[in-house]
């Protein structure tokens, strides 16, 4: 358990670091929970959980310094407890969503500390102490990451038994509901994303994407069995409905359309400018004739 606690603490601190350094997005559940799974010794399970948790938190992005919920912390704790206790996605989601909300509170509290340090930074600049300025800058973010490491470490070390007891008393219907909820939650993610991109001019493209993703289906044969019917033997085929276009293929088509839109917008700008120039020369020639 000590080793597991160290791993979770390390992954949480690392996720927080890599979220800021270079903004690599590696703190997204899809990557960080997969990494966590590999370190905890549940590689395949980790990757699948990572994909499911990513879908739950898909719409949560920190924009303009505002973090709606701390999806990184929620996903890491949800994924870690699910893997350590041998539980499934329903448990991961049930733990991840409230923990993500709690994580935001913690993040806000830490940001208040940083905000309190701002006058100190300004004072050091005024007093011409560059060395202290640099040292304080390093100290504040080192503290920040040590806090997250300790949080992950202590929660797993001390909290696993509590969580296990909690998970064991949950009735089946709650488990089933959580599974249903985990298929519905991506809708909230999509809605949050749409809010930042939606405008009247471009909204039809959302429905175009939906159509490309939803309407093109084919029946893929997954299995076949020979049945002994009354007259003669027949082959019974099992089929599943499969989407023809993958998201990568839709992204390819979408990029073509986006390029066409950009070209037409740029052409409009050029036309407007040449109109302006034309109007200007007209004015000048009129002045000439008026004189």
């Amino acid at each position: 358990m000590l080793m597991n606690a160290l791993i979770v603490g390390f992954v949480l601190a690392f996720a927080k670091f890599i979220d800021w350094w270079g903004n690599t997005m590696l703190s997204r559940p899809i990557f960080i929970v997969a990494l966590l799974g590999a370190l905890l010794g549940h590689p395949t399970e980790g990757i699948i959980l990572a994909a499911q948790l990513e879908l739950v938190f898909l719409g949560n992005v920190s924009l303009g310094g505002v973090m709606p919920t701390d999806f990184t912390m929620g996903a890491i704790f949800g994924g870690a407890f699910a893997m350590l206790l041998g539980e499934d996605l329903a448990t991961a989601v049930m733990l991840a969503v409230p923990l993500a909300a709690l994580g935001t509170l913690l993040y806000s509290a830490m940001k208040v500390v940083v905000t309190a340090l701002v006058p100190k930074f300004e004072q050091l600049t005024r007093n011409k102490k560059l060395g202290s300025f640099k040292a304080l800058w390093i100290a504040q973010f080192a503290m920040f990451h040590i806090c997250y490491f300790l949080l992950g470490f202590l929660c797993v070390l001390l909290g696993t038994d509590v969580i296990q007891a909690f998970v064991e008393v949950i009735p089946d219907w709650v488990q089933a509901s959580m599974t249903v909820a985990s298929t519905m939650l991506p809708a909230l993610g999509m809605a949050l994303l749409m809010k930042s991109l939606w405008s009247k001019e471009v909204c039809p493209y959302y429905f175009l994407g939906f159509g490309l993703g939803a309407f093109f289906l084919y029946n893929a044969t997954t299995a076949g069995t020979i049945t002994e019917a009354a007259q003669d033997a027949a082959i019974q085929l099992t089929t599943t409905t499969t989407k023809i276009l993958s998201l990568t293929q839709i992204a390819f088509l979408g990029a073509i359309i986006a390029a066409l839109v950009i070209f037409s917008e740029l052409r409009k700008i050029k036309e407007k400018e040449s109109m302006k120039i034309a109007a200007k020369t007209m004015d000048e020639s009129e002045d000439f004739f008026n004189d």
Binding site: L58, G211, L212, L247
Partner: peptide
Amino acid sequence: KGFSVLGLTMIGAMTAQYV
């Protein structure tokens, strides 16, 4: 505007495939 077009198309496709 071009990037919004691509972004929205992808969100539409993901609505279809992942919700």
